[in-house]
Amino acid sequence: MTPLLQVDNLRIELTTRDGVAPVIDDLSLQLNAGETLSFVGESGCGKSMTALALMGLLPEGVGRVASGKILFDGEDLTQASDARLREIRGNEISMIFQEPMTSLNPVYTIGEQIAEVLRRHQNLSKKAAWNKAIELLDAVRIPNPSARVSDYPHQMSGGQRQLVMIAIALACEPKILIADEPTTALDVTVQAQIFDLLRDLGREFGTAIILITHDMGAVADMAERMIVMYAGRKAEAGPVEQVIEHPRHPYTKGLISCVPHLIATLTEERPELTEVAGIVPSLRDFGRDQCLFASRCDRADQQCKSSRPPEIEFDDGQSSACWHAEQL
């Protein structure tokens, strides 16, 4: 089976004042229909850039695909024309953003905003689009959809606004839904509702989901496979349970153990949290031929500082870009 989405050796460069920096450096991945893949990492690791590249929405004049391919259903999106990309966006791949407060237009009703997508992409009539909008609100479980459809965004809570964003993203039944930190600004009970919804949609329509997050709990809950990004590079990838059980990259390990988690039975014991000292390197250092995590890693040795670690493959598709991966 050919994967729905295949990214080969993607390199994205940003032009900054200090020169050209590779914000995505040699990234390869595959995504099958109906699957949920998660990108994990701190801010500044290139998670969102990857998503923007897949949508063909890299910041104009600043960011560009330097090399590599993004194959969607066999078609290379890096070569596609703007018109073709516009066709794909919304219809085939759509995206929901982190800030449900700012991604909706405050001067249009939510019904108009959902209907706009349908009229543009599917040439529905005004009436038909409006009725479909009500159906979609019902599908994302907003109570009393036929009344709420003429509400303005400010009349809805943050969680409901994010549900509306999901309704817009799903309007054309896309094959891939990219969710960029979809629940970061929301309460946990609302987050749980949105995750339930996304999971059901994946099951029902076979929509593949790319979930971008920094919350390992959310990854464990939602995704089948994960990619840990660090400074524009793939640090580790593999099946979620396996990676969480046995991380093969010190960064993954740090990400899991630096956050206190709720566990099945709490005890009096409260071990110190693992600190990942320092911060993500600046863009200037992104292209260097070394392990970019070395400056924050307590295992780093001379080799880590002098050459970039290759991707080492393990069982069941787990892979890690660390010189010490086998010892971990």
């Binding site: 009970t189 987050q191 390992m216 464990a220 709720l262 566990i263």
Partner: peptide, 16 residues
């Protein structure tokens, strides 16, 4: 409800 909504990396907790 609040506690049950928190996603967890602990497999045992997720199952329980």
């Amino acid at each position: 409800a609040l506690l049950s909504a928190v996603p967890s990396v602990d497999k045992k907790r997720r199952l329980e």
